[in-house]
Design a protein around this nucleic acid. Structure first.
Lengths: 194, 194
DNA sequence: TAGAAAAAATGAGGTATGTTAATAAATTAG
DNA sequence: CTAATTTATTAACATACCTCATTTTTTCTA
């Protein structure tokens, strides 16, 4: 297996391709290295790419008029990241994507993605299933936000992303949970006291 | 155009099919009539179908241990409804789906859906795009829940579903917004006073 | 159309979370 | 290693929303 095979198997673990298909796929991907603190997308920019995370950590967040940030997603190994709402509709980003731990990404354009769907139907199936899973996890998050108090949401978060704590500041977690950092502090204290 | 064509164009507005494909699709759909107060899915049941809403209104909700309900989705004309998380993974429902206004639905099984994907690739594209839109709207809802106070969420809801108010009780809306009905009452009074 | 039932509104009081400000702890840079 | 900076914690007070109890309004049904 050469390093190109490696990229393919990293990204499309379950799918089998012919050599020709592999080459086709590879032609559309580009490797990107991002340092902590760098942004791969800023609010207002045209969104033409999605990124597969090979390693490192990024976060996607929305900023309101008062400058408060709301984290929509943390992206770690094996996750895809973009402002997907804008990516799907080829429109302007409302989100910012910041690297919070040095990362290696594989980048592909919307055009390339759609070209590949036409050439390789299994790829469309792969992405459809990926969407179904993302949909399910968003649904879970919506229900959690509706039904659970902040403390429970924090516990759920920690259990869902057990490895993420090292890469992520508490105020990032707070902005994901929709609470103030001070509230998270109290919750953490409360949990520690149990 | 016969009535079968009609079903196809209702459901798959943008897609063009051959006669043979149309017949294939039709063989997999079944029409269902549901009365107000009836349930098309109960928590704990195996989820094998998704439903296209021709008319009427349903709501999908989760019930917690204390018996409180949280509405995930209202489904009106042109929407698809199911416990999708369970449908995609062919597992047991955590949600209940109740008819809140007499409805006509087109029902299709998971197996049928996947058979059709194989036979008619445009259908897979259609459903992929549908998922992308659902994903985008879920994302919007998550951000709204994080960033907006209840009053703003209510206003957004009313603007997003301008026609839904007739079919839906205030306590349904409250359970969608994640607030108590009493709080919604106060918000409505507050808005009326403006 | 009257009476019953369901839904919505209102009021009083409680709680979780927000805000602001100060301090402590941890991380980073020189 | 120390100083500077960033992050996390704590405290006091404010507020949005919740809960429970009651009343009013609307809808349903006989």
């Amino acid at each position: 297996m050469d390093s190109n095979d490696c990229i393919i198997t990293e990204i499309f673990k379950e799918v089998l391709f012919s050599e020709e298909e592999k080459q086709n796929i590879l032609n559309h991907f580009e490797t990107v290295q991002v340092k902590k603190g760098e942004f791969i997308l800023n609010e207002g920019e045209q969104v033409n790419h999605q990124y597969f995370v090979l390693n490192g950590c990024l976060r996607t967040y929305f900023t309101d008029k008062q400058g408060k940030e709301y984290t929509l997603q943390f992206a770690i190994k094996d996750w895809w990241v973009s402002d997907f709402t804008a990516f799907f509709s080829a429109s302007k980003a409302i989100m910012t994507i910041e690297c919070i731990q040095e990362a290696t990404l594989y980048k592909i354009s919307k055009q390339s993605t759609e070209d590949l769907y036409k050439d390789i139907p299994q790829l469309e199936t792969f992405f459809r299933i990926k969407m179904e899973k993302a949909f399910a996890s968003f649904q879970k998050r919506i229900l959690g936000n509706l039904a659970l108090p902040a403390k429970e949401r924090y516990i759920t978060f920690i259990n869902t992303y057990p490895n993420i704590e090292k890469s992520v500041k508490n105020y990032h977690i707070a902005s994901y949970l929709g609470i103030a950092t001070e509230s998270l502090s109290r919750i953490r204290k409360d949990i520690a006291t149990d």
